[in-house]
């Protein structure tokens, strides 16, 4: 299992041809209290850099972009009832959606944990 990061503060956990995607702990700390998460539709096709989900704090709405191209396999319905999971467990229980990886070369430009830490330092 590999965890990768984007410059837009998303994380991707890669397991086989599936990528589980959420926003990072750093991102949630910048956003503040999350009150609503809009999820993509299961079965929809997302293109890299396309707006995929929306995370809303009291003050503002922030887009979550698809970091790679792929089909949405599953979304985290638990965030509907408990959006604050994004604050309490951003890189665990608050995963947002899972994509079937269409093109593994999409992963090549992404950062590993050490590089992401340096990016946010």
């Amino acid at each position: 299992m590999t965890v990768l990061y984007t410059t837009d503060h998303e994380w991707l956990r890669i397991e086989g041809d599936t990528a589980t995607i959420g926003i990072t702990g750093y991102a949630q700390s910048q956003l503040g209290d999350v009150v609503f998460v809009e999820l993509p539709k299961v079965g929809s096709q997302l293109t890299k850099a396309q707006a995929a989900a929306v995370v809303e704090s009291v003050k503002a709405a922030s887009d979550v972009y698809a970091p790679i191209t792929g089909e949405v396999l599953e979304v985290n319905e638990a965030l509907g009832a408990e959006p604050a999971l994004v604050n309490s467990d951003a890189e665990g229980k608050a995963w947002i959606f899972k994509l079937r990886i269409a093109d593994r070369s999409d992963l090549e430009g992404l950062m590993d944990e050490a590089a992401y830490k340096a990016h946010t330092a």
């Binding site: 503040g32 209290d33 009150v35 704090s57 009291v58 003050k59």
Partner: peptide, 12 residues
């Protein structure tokens, strides 16, 4: 300051 450490929700 838009918020302090406790955050908008708790401050409200």
């Amino acid at each position: 300051p838009v918020q302090y450490a406790s955050g908008v929700l708790k401050e409200h």
